[in-house]
Structures are given as C-alpha cells and as structure tokens.
Computed example of a mutant assay.
Amino acid sequence: MTDPDFVYTTYIDTTPEKLWRALTDPAFTREYWWGTEQLSTWDEGAPMTWDGEDDPEQVVLESDPPRRLSYTWHTFTTTWAERVGIAEELRARLAAESRSRVTFEIEPEGALVKLTVVHGGFDQGSTVRAMVGEGWPLVASSLKSYLETGRPLPAAQ
C-alpha cells in the first residue's frame, strides 16, 4: 500500500519557458529554493544532483520542455540534513523510505501559467509525504514570488 500523491497547483504570471528555466537552471533554483542548486542536463535518464552531491539513483524520468519535468526525489544525505537543520534520527527515517518522484506540469492558462506539482510513490505512513505537504506549497509560493517580483519569499532565502 502507498500513501496518496501530493498535488499542488498555482498560477504564475510568467511564460512556460521562463518557468521551465526557473525549474532547471541552478542560478534560478538557488534564488527561491533555500539556496539549493539542482544540476542536470535534464535529458530523460540523466542524473540529477542537489548541490553536486553524487546520487546515482536520482534521475530525470521525463523531460518535455517547457511542459513536463519529472525526476526521482533525492537521497536524504547527512550534508542535506545539516544544511536544512534536520536531526539525524529524522534524516535516517526519511532515507529508509522508498524513493519517491516529483512531476511538474506546466500549462499555459490565458495570460498565466498553471503549475501543478505532483509528488508521489510514497510508502504507507510516509514521513516524506507528510513533509512535502508543507514543503511544496512554500517552494511553489517562493517560485511564484520570484518570477513575478524578482524576490523569493524570505523563508526560502
């Protein structure tokens, strides 16, 4: 059994191309995603790293610029936990869960762009699922703010 997917939708005053760039360009992700750089060629099957940490199991599952991007969710490393202030006990519990996946669906909606974040593949009773339910709304809001005003949310800096 698995926990249900987390789904979050927001509308952003931008273009699909700018939103795609914000999701894939490390200079952008560093600005609105807690200083994190996500590095990849963004081709299907390509590795995807967070801040250059080697993680051979984190790969791009689907890449259809500027419409859809999907990748496996990261390994919860000690370096990551220290950077974001996660205790070792919680980090170990997160790392013991099955690897999940995140998908970004980008759709033009009149003068706006509809961004839907779907994060799924969680174990039953997943701690990761509980955490992404709080994390994704903050990340998506910071992304929206950054694209619309040039400033991310203060909590994401």
Rank of each mutant, 00 (worst) to 15 (best):
K18Q: 14
L143H: 03
W136L: 10
S98F: 02
Q157A: 04
V132Y: 05
P26I: 07
S70K: 11
K144D: 08
P137I: 12
I86E: 13
P65I: 01
W136Q: 09
D123P: 06
L143K: 05
L90Q: 14
T116P: 06
L69F: 07
K18D: 15
T29D: 11
V7F: 00
L39G: 07
L94N: 09
T15R: 05
E37C: 00
E62N: 03
R91L: 08
L147C: 13
P56Q: 06
E105D: 15
M1N: 10
Q124C: 08
P154H: 00
R101P: 01
S70G: 09
P56F: 04
W33L: 12
Y32K: 04
L94P: 10
E88V: 04
T9F: 01
L112H: 05
A96S: 15
P108D: 14
Q58N: 12
L39E: 11
Y11R: 12
R21S: 15
P65Y: 05
G45W: 06
M1V: 08
V139N: 05
R129Q: 15
L23E: 15
S63H: 10
Q58W: 01
K18M: 13
L153M: 04
L115T: 11
V128F: 07
W80V: 13
P108A: 08
T77H: 04
E37Y: 07
E134I: 09
Y146I: 02
R21G: 12
R93I: 10
D55I: 01
Q124G: 07
P4K: 03
V118R: 13
L115Y: 08
K18L: 11
H119T: 14
G45C: 07
L39A: 12
M1Y: 02
V84I: 07
E105S: 06
P152R: 05
L90R: 09
G85N: 09
V60Q: 13
L147A: 10
Q58T: 14
P16N: 04
V60W: 06
L94M: 14
R99C: 10
